[in-house]
Design a protein around this nucleic acid. Structure first.
Lengths: 132, 132
DNA sequence: ATAGACCCTGACACCAGTGTCAGGGTCAAC
DNA sequence: GTTGACCCTGACACTGGTGTCAGGGTCTAT
């Protein structure tokens, strides 16, 4: 099948399919006219790529084990677990950081609300301007 | 003071100080030789900028109310609350997404571990398959 | 007067995948 | 034989703060 058809079948844009190819994730043969020709199996390959991208892996990381998981069960691909582990650590780090920011933000919001309850509307109205 | 001194006092790189200026966050005067000359108050300004950047605000967003919070209490600056609110929503969205990814990742890791425990290669227990 | 520390502007690189445009080729149907 | 759908490559933009380099000016102490 040609690239447009694969794009429709997978919901991935033509642009992205070409990008995946440039990253070594999928290698269609070329017809005499230069068009990419994909095997029907390419649909599964692209779905697999989508799955890993949704797990937060990069195309480069996926390239390291994609051909293994397409052939075998994931559990047989030694590269996968360490990658998952480090990715999980990274995500936990980000979660922690975001949570921290969220707490700070909520704290400041609560503090502003408290302060506004204490002050009269006219104090708010005459709040000054400008100045560096 | 000159830019290098301000950088040392605040722990912010010279590069970043120039960037903040380009974003309209701080406006040092210029000496005859073209050097930036910062008032001692600039230290506080930069600390304030750091604080807001750490809350996940962008320099553009900070530019919208920095004037005001430097002059008044934060609670008097009308621009701040809506910004905090939308930023909080955004962070909650990201937290949700990351949490989802984390769950999927953990699910797949558990599935791999299960499969490896039954590690007779021909034992095709269909325990964990395709988390999407 | 010269070394060395400090300052200036401008510009590219980075992350990473996707959109989009330009400029041009191929193919099938009518 | 022309129209229109589809394909090709190459390249820029975007997000946004920071590092870093190039190429050059200024200041101070020796």
């Amino acid at each position: 099948m040609k690239i447009g058809e694969l794009a429709k079948l997978t919901g991935v844009s033509v642009r992205s399919l070409r990008y995946y190819e440039s990253q070594g994730l999928i290698s269609p043969v070329r017809l005499a006219n230069g068009y990419r020709e994909y095997s029907p199996l390419a649909v599964e390959t692209v779905e697999t790529i989508k799955l890993y991208l949704n797990l937060g892996l990069t195309t480069e990381e996926i390239a390291g084990f994609l051909h293994c998981v397409l052939k075998n069960k994931e559990a047989f691909c030694a590269e996968v677990m360490p990658l998952y582990e480090s990715k999980l650590k990274e995500i936990e780090r980000q979660l922690h950081q975001l949570t921290q920011i969220k707490l700070n933000l909520e704290e400041r919001m609560a503090s502003i609300r408290r302060e506004r309850e204490l002050s009269g509307a006219e104090t708010l109205a005459k709040a000054g301007e400008e100045g560096f």
